[in-house]
């Protein structure tokens, strides 16, 4: 027990010390400068917007798929599940290349997309596309687990009581899975907020906050970057707290 405790202390130290060291290095003057910089505010708002929009898009397209996967058996289901999970294991730079080739200006879809004003390279929509790609598995898996954990009789009885399939989905399945869907949405959103690898390839401009962190680190060095990092860290911690709160509320 003592030995185990010692090992645990080592890993806990390794996990917490970076936070402390980051705080210690923070320069309040630089923090003020960072918070008032228009470039930073713009990058931050852009990232928040893109992450939120991509999460909403994922909910519209991902929740129905999650419901199908949770409730129906069909040929090729395993393949569909594999496809939805694949983005989790693809290296971020590879995601950038793939999305660029598939939907970028030289792709077969580019003319259709351009007609509706969507260009997937160095644009807001390129960022949204990457965020959707990396966030999809998180949202779909959570929502699927949420739907699968609903007792099928709760839906079946609603049907017997006179509700059609659509009404049953909106009045029974969706509310009962809402906490799981919300958790998945928050995870996908947080995943988007942390994405940088794919963006360096497909959308260096307009600059998201993480691209800016890397750029500042390369140009201004550690001190300026620390201030910027603290802002990102606070956002992450807020999301983390909200997530834990939802999970507790679920039980």
């Amino acid at each position: 027990m003592v030995f185990f405790s010692l090992l645990s202390v080592v890993i806990l130290f390794f996990l917490t010390y970076p936070f402390v060291s980051l705080m210690l290095l923070a320069d309040p003057k630089l923090l003020g400068f960072t918070l008032s910089s228009a470039t930073i505010i713009r990058a931050l708002l852009l990232t928040l917007e893109a992450a939120t929009l991509s999460t909403l898009i994922l909910m519209v397209f991902g929740v129905p798929l999650a419901y199908i996967l949770a409730r129906f058996e069909f040929r090729g289901k395993k393949l569909v599940e594999a496809i939805t999970d694949l983005p989790l294991v693809i290296p971020h730079a590879v995601v950038g290349i793939m999305v660029l080739i598939a939907f970028g200006p030289k792709s077969p879809f580019s003319s259709i997309l351009e007609n509706i004003g969507v260009i997937i390279e160095n644009s807001f929509w390129a960022i949204v596309a990457v965020f959707c790609f990396v966030g999809a598995p998180l949202l779909i898996d959570c929502a699927k687990d949420g739907f699968a954990s609903i007792d099928p009789y709760l839906e079946g009885v609603a049907r017997c009581m006179g509700a059609g399939a659509g009404r049953t989905f909106y009045t029974i399945s969706l509310p009962l899975a809402s906490k799981s869907i919300l958790t998945g949405a928050l995870l996908a959103w947080a995943r988007s907020m942390s994405e940088v690898g794919a963006l360096l390839i497909i959308a260096y401009y307009p600059k998201t906050i993480n691209v800016l962190v890397i750029e500042w680190f390369n140009i201004y060095g550690l001190r300026y970057t620390v201030a910027l990092t603290l802002i990102l860290l606070s956002i992450s911690i807020i999301v983390f707290v909200v997530l834990r709160w939802i999970l507790r509320w679920k039980h």
Binding site: D151, Y153, G156, V157, C160, L176
Partner: peptide
């Protein structure tokens, strides 16, 4: 489909919507 049959079903666990 069930909703067109007009039969109320009461399963063993009652299936009340929580």
């Amino acid at each position: 489909p069930p909703e067109k049959r007009e039969l109320a079903f009461l399963p063993q666990n009652y299936a009340l919507w929580p």
